[in-house]
């Protein structure tokens, strides 16, 4: 077989009786293609990244789901797996990685720290990456087991299955100013959490905000 042979090959022509047809919905075939070759963009920072590596290695083998190609370039990735803690210093990097990804794109928040800040309710940590980027699936655990991550990816696949091309605009709409703005307003949070507040709106009502030891000099704010 050489190039010559290929040139002489008969091109498929409509109406040729040898060809077989398959009729289906465009939505189905597009979603089928999309969900079975998701390329993850591993945004791994801490412990969860090690579990993500374990899921890619031989025992758990992400390749079974068409995801063996970890795309280290956001431009070619479909699903952002944010695995690990995200401090405020890293927040713009995460946002930028997300912005660089092409539509359609999905996001998995892997682990307690990425989903809610985890045990790190401190001055340097983002309290959940959903204040930075929109998240489709949260995988709980500290860190989640590889099975948990795989289940999260399968949930993304389920989600893709039910998407429709006709609804593309609405599904992909993103408020550019929305990042960093709490979704719930203060009264809503207060009604749900009482005097404790939550970690993003603690300073309004919670006495937990006064965690400094009293009786010391003020250090200079620059």
């Amino acid at each position: 077989m050489g190039i010559k042979d290929r040139q002489n090959e008969q091109l498929p022509v409509a109406g040729n009786s040898d060809l077989t047809f398959l009729t289906t919905k465009v939505d189905f075939v597009v979603n089928w293609a999309r969900r079975n070759s998701l390329w993850p963009m591993p945004f791994g920072t801490a412990c969860c990244a090690i579990e993500m590596m374990a899921s890619a290695a031989s025992n758990f083998d992400l390749a079974r789901f068409g995801m063996e190609r970890m795309s280290f370039s956001p431009r070619q990735a479909d699903v952002l797996i944010c695995a690990g803690r995200v401090p405020y210093k890293l927040a713009p990097v995460l946002r930028r990685t997300w912005d660089q990804m092409m539509q359609p794109k999905w996001c998995i928040s892997m682990g307690a720290c990425a989903s809610s800040g985890g045990v790190f309710d401190t001055y340097s940590m983002v309290q959940g990456i959903d204040t930075i980027v929109p998240v489709d699936v949260y995988v709980p655990g500290c860190p989640p087991r590889p099975e948990g991550l795989i289940y999260g990816l399968m949930m993304i696949q389920e989600k893709i299955k039910s998407e429709s091309m006709a609804d593309h605009e609405r599904l992909r709409r993103e408020d550019p100013e929305g990042a960093g703005r709490p979704v719930a307003d203060s009264s809503e949070v207060k009604a749900l959490t009482g005097v404790f507040g939550n970690s993003t709106q603690q300073d309004k009502f919670s006495s937990l905000a006064q965690t400094a030891r009293p009786g010391r000099f003020k250090d200079v704010l620059k």
Partner: peptide, 30 residues
């Protein structure tokens, strides 16, 4: 560096002695 600064040492000052143990393994997850 500092892109993973999770303030372990500050957090430790607000935990009892035994409560620090779960923080230590998140520090070096290897």
């Amino acid at each position: 560096i500092g892109y993973l600064h999770s303030s372990f040492e500050k957090l430790g000052e607000f935990r009892t002695w035994n409560q620090i143990v779960p923080l230590t393994d998140r520090m070096d997850y290897l």
